[in-house]
Design a protein around this nucleic acid. Structure first.
Length: 153
DNA sequence: CGTTTGACTACGC
DNA sequence: CGCGTAGCCAAAC
């Protein structure tokens, strides 16, 4: 028997936000990557957690907007495809893209961020260890071959 | 009180 | 490369 939801969603959210605060300006992380650093609750199948954790992280991020005190760079968390998950055209989505652009994160024609270029590698190993977190699962980066995206200058 | 709906992701066409 | 689907379940309607 296992609860399919964080036993303590409150502390899970806090954990997510703690990690998100570590994301430096100019790069992005994904829901799945954040979740991969948080140990799966006992009883939750690892494979299930890969998806569940991402959903939980999404919920945690959703909870930020209502209580955003400005300390959480929520805009730096996007989906595994490099896209913004908020409803396109919504006020929040526009704000997210605006902030990312301002931080230097580039968007490709299809409206996605190249995770290979702007993807975050995760916090320092020391920090992770101090907080009892796991090493982030590498982002699914696009075939890093030719840097056909050159928008500087 | 039944239905719909997600700030997700991997996978198959 | 883009779109649809399954799996999951608390909350909002």
């Amino acid at each position: 028997m296992s609860s399919m939801f964080p036993p303590d969603s409150e502390s899970y959210n806090a954990l997510v936000w703690k990690i998100v605060r570590q994301i430096p300006s100019g790069v992005v992380s994904t829901y799945g990557q954040i979740a991969s650093m948080i140990p799966a609750p006992a009883g939750v199948d690892e494979q299930d957690y890969e998806r569940l954790g991402a959903v939980w992280t999404g919920k945690a991020m959703n909870a930020v907007s209502s209580a955003d005190d400005g300390s959480i760079p929520w805009q730096r968390v996007i989906n595994s495809q490099g896209g913004i998950s908020l409803p396109e055209g919504s006020r929040a989505a526009v704000e997210q893209k605006r902030r990312l652009l301002q931080e230097g994160v580039g968007f490709e024609k299809n409206g996605r961020v190249n995770l290979g270029q702007f993807g975050w590698d995760g916090p320092d190993a020391d920090w992770l260890h101090e907080n009892h977190l796991l090493a982030p699962k590498p982002l699914r980066k696009p075939p890093a071959s030719n840097p056909q995206q050159l928008t500087l200058f």
